[in-house]
Design a protein around this nucleic acid. Structure first.
Lengths: 255, 255
DNA sequence: TAGTGGTCTAGACCACATG
DNA sequence: ATGTGGTCTAGACCACTAA
């Protein structure tokens, strides 16, 4: 089961380091160079890296700094480390993990910009259920959104979001032009944690009509609670996706 | 948006540290104590922790060690850190993330032990598709499994797995009594990375019959490729779940 | 300005896997 | 016995936030 290709000593492709104040952290600079080397094939899958101590000395950094760079890539699923063995480039390239971005950005990146229709946009006093979801007192004003996401003229997803007080003034125009997550970020929200539950269900009549599918056909569902960096709930979402057009990818790293 | 409860100085609930050789790492000892304090409510949600430097000095550890303990809990979604602000206990308790365990273990933990029926168990030479999935040459022997997972007498999931050469001698009995992942671990497999894709589809006739649902009704689907600590593919899986009985939970931590 | 986490150094010893 | 990553120390300076 063990595999030990011989050590590879990449030359000084660790170019000059930028140690000026305000520069990108050194460990990030190293991590990026290693990542690029893996992406371009300079570091072939399965290659064993030079050991940490030697690499640190050769680059001119302390071992903890180099170690932090390597750990970043381990967390990304690009490298694997074993005590007593060494550090290897993972055999199979892995896809990016599910991250804290919106579907809008997902598709934009893939060169297939979607459009959005705002179906409803209301500010209401929170009922018991909404209050529980947002962690606010009953009666607090909250913004309820329903949107339809399309690729070209094909409906892709039906999005239902609820947002708490500080964001009730978000306009329908903003949502169409910028997307929900980008809008929130532009207002200073820094996302820290989100909890998702992914499931499936049969399409109800109203959902089927909006998504242009048959009633009762399968839908992929996702619920999400997103928290900002101070632990406050920023958004609660309940979404349906056409499973022929969308799925969720995750990379799991064991700890 | 910012919230700043006053600093909390937990007393010497950091009991004596075990510094004997072979003991649990110091940062793990600290992390566990902090985690317990959060779980029991000694550290209330929203509480701001003592700063790293002071905590390290008081406990009698170096700052990097304490910092590593805190980082562990940040990665678990229990704490949030902000430069210039401090470290806070997260407001809302989070569920455990999807991890590298099997459905068997998931349900066992929830006190609802499932049963397993092995529907088929064959060793075959890998065709092109299997070879691609397992990253082995065409023609390599591989074990093809189909299992039905039940809770009581209710079918829950239909599991299809393919395993490469070193594991083709796993028996049906092992699978029923131990579960696939536990069997692999007992053979020395250390999981490192897995890639999953979660989607939905309509149940085919054969699937519907086995799962005791109507043909065409929605199914939750999951594909997974699991790699061991040396980057070799250990298992490829293609599973269907009854969406009324199962869903996937994930906690996303922003980086 | 004061206080926080973020980064970095230059070492050290330990645990584990291999030959 | 050797070489690897895992842990740990005791400091330092920087970047960001708040008052």
């Amino acid at each position: 089961m063990a595999r030990e290709p011989e050590t590879e000593l990449p030359a000084e492709f660790f170019g000059p380091l930028d140690r000026s104040p305000g520069a990108v952290p050194l460990y990030v600079q190293i991590a990026r160079k290693l990542e690029a080397a893996i992406a371009t094939g300079t570091l072939v899958a399965g290659t064993r890296l030079e050991n940490e101590v030697a690499m640190a000395k050769r680059i001119g950094l302390s071992r903890p700094t180099v170690r932090q760079a390597i750990q970043d890539l381990v967390d990304k699923g690009l490298l694997v480390r074993r005590r007593g063995i060494g550090t290897q480039v993972i055999q199979r390239p892995v896809a990016r993990p599910v991250d804290l971005t919106s579907l809008y950005e997902d598709l934009e990146k893939s060169g297939n910009p979607p459009s959005t229709v705002v179906l409803s946009h209301r500010v209401e006093a929170a009922d018991a259920e909404t209050a529980e979801r947002l962690g606010v007192p009953v009666g607090t004003p909250s913004l309820h959104l329903r949107r339809l996401r399309l690729v070209g003229s094909t409906p892709l997803a039906l999005l239902h979001n609820v947002l708490p007080a500080p964001f009730t003034d978000i306009t329908a125009d903003e949502l169409v032009s910028t997307g929900l997550y980008a809008t929130l970020r532009s207002r200073g929200v820094v996302f820290s944690i989100a909890q998702q539950r992914i499931g499936a269900k049969a399409a109800e009549d109203s959902e089927a009509e909006l998504l242009n599918i048959d009633p009762g056909s399968p839908l992929l569902t996702m619920n999400r609670t997103a928290l900002d960096h101070s632990g406050d709930i920023v958004e609660w979402g309940d979404h349906c996706y056409r499973p022929d057009l969308y799925s969720f990818e995750t990379t799991l790293i064991s700890r």
